[in-house]
């Protein structure tokens, strides 16, 4: 969904960083994207290429660091892996799950000159 809008926000953040930290060119961007985040990594890569044109991030490589989904199962009282929303606990099948990790969409680091 709306990956173009997200990429516009991402590129604006990168331009802001370039301005405040004083670098002229970005070669690579590492994004942490959780399995439960509302974003499709392939669409991010496709849109990033377009949005970055004519900016400090033109031709930058987008590296996506996938983060697995993890939830607390109320029934098992333990943390369990989940791959998407609506999945049950892989051990007991319960849907009483509290997501612990895998919802993030974060810029981790950038390679600049």
């Amino acid at each position: 969904m709306h990956e173009l809008a997200l990429c516009e926000g991402l590129v604006q953040s990168l331009e802001d960083q370039a301005m405040s930290k004083g670098f002229a060119k970005i070669f690579a961007v590492w994004l942490e994207i959780g399995a439960l985040a509302t974003v499709e990594p392939d669409a991010m890569t496709f849109n990033f290429e377009i949005v970055a044109r004519g900016t400090v991030a033109e031709d930058a490589r987008l590296e996506i660091i996938p983060v697995a989904g993890e939830a607390w199962c109320m029934n098992c009282s333990t943390s369990v892996p989940i791959t998407r929303r609506g999945d049950g606990c892989p051990t007991c099948g319960s849907y009483q799950l509290q997501v612990l990790d895998g919802e993030q969409m974060r810029i981790k680091q950038i390679e600049v000159a």
Binding site: Q12, S13, F23, Q104, I107, K108, Q109
Partner: peptide, 23 residues
Amino acid sequence: LHAHAAGMPATRMVQIEQDIMAK
């Protein structure tokens, strides 16, 4: 995407840790 040709400035890593929905 970036060949490190002689004379090119060395690149460096900058940690950002920012949500892309921050705006």
